[in-house]
Simulated assay, not measured.
Amino acid sequence: MATWQLQEAKAKLSEVIDIAQKKGPQIITQRGVKTAVIHSFEEWEQSQQSKKPTLLEILQSGPQGDLPIPPRGSWKMRKPVKF
Score class of each variant (00 low, 15 high):
Glu8Met: 04
Ala9Ser: 03
Ala9Asn: 02
Lys10Gly: 03
Ala11Asn: 09
Ala11Glu: 06
Lys12Gly: 03
Lys12Val: 00
Lys12Trp: 00
Lys12Thr: 01
Leu13Asn: 00
Leu13Phe: 03
Leu13His: 01
Ser14His: 03
Ile17His: 00
Ile17Asn: 00
Ile17Gly: 00
Ile17Thr: 02
Ile19Val: 14
Ile19Tyr: 05
Ile19Pro: 00
Ala20Ser: 11
Ala20Pro: 00
Ala20Thr: 00
Gln21Lys: 06
Gln21Gly: 05
Lys22Cys: 03
Lys22His: 11
Lys22Trp: 04
Lys23His: 10
Gly24Gln: 05
Gly24Tyr: 01
Pro25Gln: 08
Pro25Trp: 01
Gln26Thr: 01
Ile27Val: 15
Ile27Ser: 03
Ile27Trp: 02
Ile28Leu: 08
Thr29Met: 04
Gln30Gly: 04
Arg31Gln: 13
Gly32Val: 09
Gly32Arg: 10
Val33Glu: 14
Val33His: 06
Val33Tyr: 05
Val33Trp: 05
Val33Ala: 10
Lys34Leu: 10
Thr35Met: 15
Ala36Asp: 08
Ile38Leu: 14
Ile38Trp: 01
Ile38Asp: 01
Ile38Asn: 01
Ser40Phe: 00
Ser40Met: 01
Ser40Pro: 00
Ser40Ala: 07
Phe41Ser: 05
Phe41Val: 10
Phe41Pro: 02
Glu42Tyr: 03
Glu42Asp: 13
Glu43Asp: 15
Trp44Ala: 12
Glu45Ser: 12
Glu45Gln: 14
Gln46Tyr: 05
Ser47Glu: 11
Ser47Ala: 10
Gln48His: 08
Gln49Ala: 15
Gln49Tyr: 09
Gln49Arg: 15
Gln49Met: 15
Ser50Phe: 07
Ser50Gln: 14
Ser50Trp: 06
Lys51Phe: 07
Lys51His: 11
Lys52Gly: 04
Lys52Pro: 04
Pro53Phe: 10
Pro53Gln: 10
Thr54Glu: 14
Leu55Lys: 13
Leu56Gln: 14
Glu57Ser: 13
Glu57Gly: 15
Glu57Thr: 09
Ile58Thr: 13
Ile58Tyr: 08
Leu59Tyr: 14
Leu59Val: 15
Leu59Ala: 13
Gln60Thr: 06
Ser61Cys: 11
Gly62Leu: 10
Gly62Asn: 05
Pro63Lys: 09
Gly65Phe: 10
Asp66Tyr: 11
Leu67His: 05
Leu67Gly: 03
Leu67Ile: 12
Leu67Val: 12
Pro68Phe: 04
Pro68Arg: 04
Pro70Lys: 09
Arg72Ala: 13
Gly73Gln: 11
Gly73Ile: 10
Lys76Met: 08
Lys76Cys: 04
Lys76Thr: 12
Lys79Val: 12
Pro80Thr: 08
